Computed example of a mutant assay.
Amino acid sequence: MKRLTIADIAQAAGVSTGAVSYALNGKPGVSPATRERVLRIADSLGWRPSNAARALTRDRVGALGLIVDRPAQVLGVEPFFMQLVAGIETALRQDPSTALTLQLTEDRAAELDTYRRWWAERRVDGVILVDLHADDPRLALLTELGMPAVALGLPQSPAVPCVWSDDDEPMREAVGYLAALGHRRIARIAGPAVFTHTERRDAAFTGAAAEHQLEWSRTLHADYTADGGARAARRLLSARDRPTAMIFDNDVMALAAMAATQEMGVAVPEQLSILSWDDSALCQLVRPGVTAMDRHITRHGVLAVTTLNEVITAGTADHRQAPAPVLMPRASTTRAPRD
């Protein structure tokens, strides 16, 4: 089907293409009667202005960008990003003229190049950053470009507002909950150590283990994948002095670990309690259901769009704190087994 153009509208209305352009863009140069006729005919023909054309005549192009530096196979199975995108889309429903541009990159250099290209080509009005690193180079680049941005994570730069949630107290709550069930040997299978949120949770876990005077605690870093979670679980369960409880940094690793425990003949929760840092439908549908920290990821997406729109329109915005994670006890945790 041929795409409708202003020439088609001009032919149907019996006027010049210039008159159609004036009428559609609300500019002077045509009579009120002609403007009304052109708008009526354009609507009946199903005319919709292109984002590229609108970008030439106004400040916004009608798109927000999100780049995820993760393998496609990881993104496809990790509920975190699906919940985040759901929150972003929920916020974007308030303005149907704005869409989400999502792109995967293979490394940080490719991500930086994409920001440069997007801004030079006027592809997006601003971007949402995920997976912050210490001294993250993206913050400096976006500030240099003057590209509106909001980051998910603890504030690092006054020029880039952040949507963040407290990880310290929830980690203390998770460790305290397991300690109250009698667990004295607790392991944590974390995400990549380069992420600032991983670093923060590492410190909170170590502090909580000391506070509860655990007999044994250990942190292993994995990659958020099912294979990474399963390998970490097998390694820990193969040790002579193995843990009686494990805390996983996402639900995918937690569920993969449950499959690994079945291979090794370790019963959950009778011999091993499992807690996931992220909650999702997966945690609720498996048996036993997985105890999890509900981090309100959808809400993070909504707040990110709200904050980014403020930056785009006003040039600045305050940091926003998302609701604190909530512990959701389920059947994967119970009292520690007797040695």
Rank of each mutant, 00 (worst) to 15 (best):
Y224F: 11
T225P: 13
T225F: 10
T225I: 13
T225L: 13
A226Y: 11
D227P: 00
D227C: 00
G228E: 12
G228F: 10
G228Q: 13
G228I: 14
G229Y: 09
A230E: 08
A230Y: 08
A230T: 05
A233R: 07
R234F: 02
R234M: 04
R235I: 10
L236H: 10
L237K: 09
L237T: 05
L237S: 09
S238F: 08
A239Q: 15
D241W: 07
D241L: 07
R242W: 04
R242P: 12
T244K: 06
T244W: 11
T244S: 13
T244R: 07
T244A: 06
M246I: 15
I247M: 04
F248V: 04
F248E: 07
D249C: 09
D249P: 03
N250C: 02
V252A: 06
V252W: 06
L255I: 13
L255K: 00
A256N: 02
A256V: 04
M258S: 00
A259R: 14
A259H: 15
A259C: 02
A260T: 05
T261H: 04
Q262F: 00
Q262S: 11
Q262L: 10
M264P: 01
M264W: 11
G265H: 12
G265L: 03
G265S: 03
A267L: 14
P269F: 14
L272C: 08
L272F: 09
L272T: 03
I274Y: 07
L275A: 02
L275C: 11
S276L: 03
W277V: 00
W277F: 10
W277D: 01
D279N: 12
A281H: 10
A281P: 01
L282P: 00
C283Q: 01
Q284E: 15
V286N: 02
V286C: 05
R287V: 08
P288I: 12
G289E: 14
V290C: 15
V290Q: 07
T291S: 15
T291C: 13
T291Y: 11
A292C: 12
M293A: 12
D294M: 09
R295G: 02
H296N: 15
H296A: 12
H296Q: 15
H296M: 08
H296K: 00
H300L: 15
G301M: 10
V302Q: 15
V302H: 04
V302R: 13
L303A: 09
T306K: 12
T306M: 01
T307Q: 05
L308H: 13
L308Y: 06
N309E: 14
N309C: 05
E310V: 00
V311Q: 08
A314F: 01
G315A: 05
G315V: 13
G315T: 10
T316R: 14
T316F: 12
T316Q: 10
T316L: 04
A317L: 02
A317I: 06
A317W: 13
H319T: 00
R320V: 15
R320L: 07
A324W: 04
P325G: 08
L327T: 04
L327A: 03
M328V: 12
M328N: 01
M328H: 00
M328K: 14
P329V: 12
R330Q: 10
S332M: 09
T333H: 01
T333Y: 09
T333E: 03
T334M: 12
T334D: 08
A336T: 09
A336S: 14
P337Y: 07
P337F: 08
